[in-house]
Design a binder for these strands. Structure first.
Lengths: 153, 153
DNA sequence: GTTTTTGTCTATCGATTAAATAGACTATTT
DNA sequence: AAATAGTCTATTTAATCGATAGACAAAAAC
């Protein structure tokens, strides 16, 4: 289960993607529109900025915006920043590997071999899905669900 | 990341699978062989028993054993008992669904659509991998790594 | 039928993390 | 200078994780 922090972060990124190119958004606007505690969101956006995913400007007309187009930011990237490694166990993480202290022989540990498959399956999806893809899927679903309307005269 | 509890539980299940059919194992033996704090392991095994995965006998000659053959217990089952739902967000869980309180429209939420794919990919692996499979993969890997030895005269 | 063995149950503890909040500070614009 | 808006540090509260203690219950052995 991902934390609220990560979920809030993804919600904010999605909104910033939707309005990409239309100038920065205020933290307070983002907080209100996504119903996220403002102070908590500040802290989340700051992390994303320090990781290079967002950029900010102070003063009037300031706020946050994506540092790169939505098609160039993967969901996996955002999750790793906010939540940590994707891997279910540290000994199969590509980005935060740590030797296993519990098992007898890491190379032949059955748990590790299965968890490696799980990690790879997750990474395959999350590293190849961008913010734009996620937005697109949402739009496609909206069309599909309310599609009937489009065919009415 | 899975908790130590889940990892300990899987280690214990793997050992019980390896010795399936040879009578029950003592908690204290399991704890010592897998280097797990005994009291913590008691609590883990009890949960697995209450969920029907393990069976136990008290008194001399007692201990824990699998309630079913290792080929009939999936890794996903064990993880759900010890760790909770596989799904990254509750609104895509098959076994512990909860309506999303944060997003505006669950049906078209982009985060949810992507996380559903992740959940399905994880479940595909974990629900189709049994304790026996996990054991087998470990054995195969041992043979592969130390295989050279087998070909020596 | 008492003793020994071994699992069961309840409670608790300390440490860490999650979620949220407060307030002073700094940069930018007007 | 004043207003705006992000930045940084600290703190709080509650929940969860990992682990431990001890009384209790059932089964077997003597």
């Amino acid at each position: 289960m991902i934390s609220k922090k990560t979920k809030y972060g993804l919600q904010a990124l999605l909104l910033l993607s939707r309005e990409y190119g239309e100038g920065p958004l205020l933290i307070s606007d983002l907080a209100e529109r996504e119903r996220i505690p403002k102070k908590f969101l500040e802290y989340i956006l700051l992390q994303l900025k320090n990781a290079g995913v967002l950029q900010s400007r102070k003063g009037k007309g300031g706020g946050y915006s994506l540092a790169k187009p939505p098609a160039e930011i993967s969901v996996g990237r955002a999750i790793r920043i906010l939540e940590g490694p994707l891997a279910p166990v540290a000994c199969v993480s590509e980005t935060a590997y740590q030797r296993c202290t519990e098992c007898h022989d890491e190379a032949t540990c059955g748990i590790r071999l299965v968890m490696k498959d799980v990690r790879d399956a997750m990474a395959e999806i999350l590293d190849h899905t961008t913010l734009q893809d996620m937005l697109q899927r949402s739009e496609d679903e909206k069309k599909k669900l309310h599609g009937v309307v489009d065919f009415q005269i």
